[in-house]
Design a protein around this nucleic acid. Sequence first.
DNA 1: CCCGAATCCCCGTGATGCCA
DNA 2: TGGCATCACGGGGATTCGGG
Length: 259
Amino acid sequence: MTLNIGGHKFQFVCNILPETDSRGVISELFPQDLYEKKDSVKLHKYGNGPFCKFKIPDCWLGRQGVYAILIDDNMVYIGECEDLLVRYNSGYGNISPRNCYIGGQSTNCKINSNILQEIKNGKVIKLFFYETSEMFAVEDDIISRLHPAWNSKSGNKRKHTELPKSSAKTKSVERNRSNNSPQYSLLTQYLLNLSGNEYKLTYDQLEQIVEGELPNSAYKHRAWWGNGGHSHANYWLDAGWQVGTVNLGKYVVFVKAGC
DNA sequence: CCCGAATCCCCGTGATGCCA
DNA sequence: TGGCATCACGGGGATTCGGG
C-alpha cells in the first residue's frame, strides 16, 4: 500500500498499536513518576503522561527518510529520521522517565501522548514512510505546503554540519506566552484573500485570525509591527501587504504593498 | 514621534554519543 | 538495548538604537 503525499510515494509501515494488558486494554504508562530527580526538576509541557508503548516491525531498521503519521487517513505529522526503527521503537514508542522533564525529549512525549489520545478516541493511527537521503528537503517541502496539525511551528534545530545548504531545515515555531500559540501563517492566508488596498484589523480580530494570543511586544512596541528586521514581518509581507498605521493594543491597518 | 534595522536571549527540536 | 546528557542550530520574542 502506498500513499501520495506532496508528490512523494509513501510506503505503508504499519498501524500503530499500543501494548495492551491481558484483557486487551491499552497499558497507560506514567514514566514521569519513576524519575529519581522528579523533586528537583520540573516536567516540561508534554511530560505529564499518560503515555503508551508501541513498536514497529524490525525490518525498518536503518531506513533513512521521511515518515508520516495519519489519523483516519488524515496526515497529522511529518518528520524525518536517520533510522525509522530507532526513531519509533526507542523514541516515540518508549518514553523514558528523563524525557518527561525539562531537558528531555519533549517531542517524543507530545507525539506519544497524542497517539494514545487519538487511539482512545477510537481513531486508527497509520505510519507511512518515504525512503530518501533528501529527507530534510522533502520534509520541509511537505510541511510548508500541507501544515500537518501536529508539526510544531518551530524550527528543527539540529546540527546542519552534514547537510547541504539547500536542505537546511526551517520550520516555524511553537513558542508563546501560553499554550494558545499564534499561527501567523493563518494571517498570511487571511491577507491573501483580501481585496482592496487597505484593511484595518483590531487586536481581537488578529488574535482570532491567528488562533492565539499576540505576544506582549505586539501590544507594547510599535517596532514589532515593523515591515522589516523581523522574520515574522514576512507573514504579512509574503501576502503582499505592509503594516501602515498602528494603534498599539487597539488596531493595525494593513496596506497593500506598493500603494 | 514614527519607523526600520539590528541585536540579544530564550528555547524547542532531535541527532549524537556515552554509559550501565 | 535503554536511558540520559549534551550539543548545534535557528526562529521568535523583546528590546534598543538611529535616521528621518
